[in-house]
Simulated scan of single mutants.
Amino acid sequence: MDNYSNLIEKLNNLSLDGFSMILEDVIKKVNNNDLGFYEALNQLVDNQIKVKKEKVYAAGIKVSHFPFIKTIDDFDFSFQPSISKTQIKDFCSLRFMENNENIIFIGTPGTGKTHLATAIGLEATRNSKLTYFITCKELTNQLKRARSENTLDRRLKHFYSYSLLIIDELGHDILDEESAADLFQLIQMRYERHPTIITTNYNISQWHTIFKNNKIALDAMLDRLLHHSSIVTINGPSYRLKEVSEYLID
């Protein structure tokens, strides 16, 4: 085995594939006097850091359970003028996470709530923040199952542990007393410790229809959710209807 192949093998054994990817090109530049020693080393290290970040991001995407991969650049703000692009860009800066603030997206179906929540979640994942996306129905079902198996505390701690938790479609189903209590307990655990993003079709004044016969749990949850939160109300048409109408135009 020649020296170059031996070096590549050692780099790969050390998981320094960012080095080995560009090593040949860097060596050529050094031999041509296009790069000095420290410049060459910097390029190798920079590429290793880049590759490592990409791997962490890919791993984060895998565990996050995002419904799709859509960034803020994919969002058509011109179609939803009620949304402040500046505000959404600020969310993507993750300043809200530093302050442990929540975000609540309110709007009718198809207005882009889930897209925006996912885009922010992707930015958090890109910055190595452990993020998890789950529908409210699936969340409460998991907590209900854990309660029946006497593992509720462990399951709550699991959802508490995420740096950012996205709960999609609050209000898709009416919550019974136990589910309302479980959801409140999770929100209480995360309060002022980890931010949560919630999407819902219902204005907050209508949440009593979701937490039916459980005003105490609703009031307690709202007290914690709204204390440090940004509420984004989307008043606009459905993207899905827009796509359908485009096909119908003669």
Rank of each mutant, 00 (worst) to 15 (best):
V30L: 14
N31W: 09
N32M: 12
N32Y: 09
N33D: 12
N33S: 12
F37Q: 05
E39G: 06
L41F: 10
N42C: 01
L44F: 07
V45F: 13
V45L: 15
D46R: 14
N47R: 14
N47F: 08
Q48V: 13
I49W: 06
V51G: 05
V51Q: 00
K52M: 01
K52D: 01
K53C: 02
K55S: 13
K55G: 12
V56Q: 01
Y57C: 07
G60A: 02
G60L: 04
I61M: 00
K62H: 01
K62C: 00
V63F: 01
V63H: 00
S64G: 00
H65I: 11
F66V: 01
P67I: 03
F68W: 02
I69W: 02
K70V: 05
I72E: 11
D74C: 13
F75T: 02
F75C: 00
F75V: 01
F75L: 00
F77G: 03
F77L: 04
F79Y: 07
S82N: 01
I83T: 09
T86C: 08
Q87E: 11
Q87P: 10
I88H: 13
I88A: 14
D90A: 14
F91R: 08
S93D: 03
L94K: 00
R95A: 15
R95V: 15
F96S: 07
F96W: 15
M97W: 03
M97K: 05
M97N: 03
E98I: 13
E98C: 11
N99G: 04
N100A: 05
N102Q: 04
N102Y: 07
I103S: 00
I104G: 02
I104F: 08
F105S: 09
I106C: 04
I106S: 04
G107T: 10
G107S: 09
T108R: 14
T111N: 02
K113M: 06
T114D: 02
L116R: 06
L116P: 03
A117R: 11
G121K: 00
L122Q: 05
L122N: 04
E123D: 04
E123V: 07
E123G: 03
A124I: 05
T125I: 00
R126C: 09
S128K: 06
K129V: 02
L130A: 02
T131Y: 00
Y132G: 07
Y132W: 08
E138R: 11
E138F: 01
E138I: 08
L139N: 12
T140W: 07
N141S: 08
N141D: 12
Q142N: 15
L143V: 15
L143W: 10
K144I: 15
K144G: 15
R145A: 12
S148G: 09
S148E: 13
E149P: 03
N150R: 14
T151I: 12
T151V: 06
R154P: 09
R154E: 13
R155C: 13
L156D: 05
K157L: 11
Y162K: 05
Y162R: 06
Y162L: 07
S163Y: 08
S163F: 09
